[in-house]
């Protein structure tokens, strides 16, 4: 089983990102489960969402304490939330930032991957909504999910032009991060 924790701020679509990952992974033939860290959601407040992926049906329903992968939608969260908590040596923390991985000093044996998802989102979608771009990047770094499956999941959720723009951002992020696998 692979476990993913997504950190974001209310309004950034962290829960949607988790749902889309679950849909995409299932299309790829995996069993999946996505759920939010249930809270009183407010715009701007730290939000956490979880995803589990496995080859067999998933029964476990606790929160995720030792994630294989962490996705951070907003680099300012690193100062507020312990995004490295429970991470594993062979895992990674993917952070949306223009800065390089060396900039982040946190207690973790997981590797740190960075990507300026905000810039990509602005270029392709025209809005600083980074959740879809980041799950494209996640697919690139992890190699767990095909980019086509992510794009299909996103275009099904957001039909038409919006979906197509998001799909372009996903492919760009995937291509950019595949080398960092």
């Amino acid at each position: 089983m692979k476990e993913i924790r997504i950190h974001g701020r209310g309004g950034q679509g962290s829960v949607t990102a988790a749902e889309l990952l679950a849909v995409a992974a299932f299309e790829d033939g995996k069993y999946s489960q996505a759920f939010p860290a249930f809270g009183v959601e407010r715009r701007g407040a730290p939000v956490t969402a979880f995803v589990r992926l496995d080859d067999k049906p998933i029964r476990l329903r606790s929160q995720i304490y030792e994630p294989d992968y962490v996705i951070v939608q907003d680099a300012t969260l690193v100062d507020v939330v312990d995004v490295a908590r429970g991470t594993k040596p062979d895992g990674f923390i993917l952070i949306n930032t223009e800065k390089s991985p060396e900039h982040f000093k946190m207690e973790t044996k997981a590797s740190i991957k960075t990507l300026d998802a905000t810039k990509l989102a602005m270029d392709f979608i025209g809005k600083p909504i980074v959740n879809t771009t980041l799950i494209g990047a996640f697919a690139g770094v992890s190699g767990l999910i095909k980019p086509e499956s992510i794009k299909n999941a996103v275009m099904e959720r957001f039909p038409g032009k919006v979906g197509e723009k998001n799909a372009a951002a996903i492919q760009a992020a995937y291509d950019m991060m595949e080398a960092h696998r």
């Binding site: 849909v23 069993y31 759920f35 939010p36």
Partner: peptide, 10 residues
């Protein structure tokens, strides 16, 4: 509540 009502699963 939440654990089943808000989870996405197949």
């Amino acid at each position: 509540g939440y654990i089943l009502s808000h989870v996405y699963e197949p």
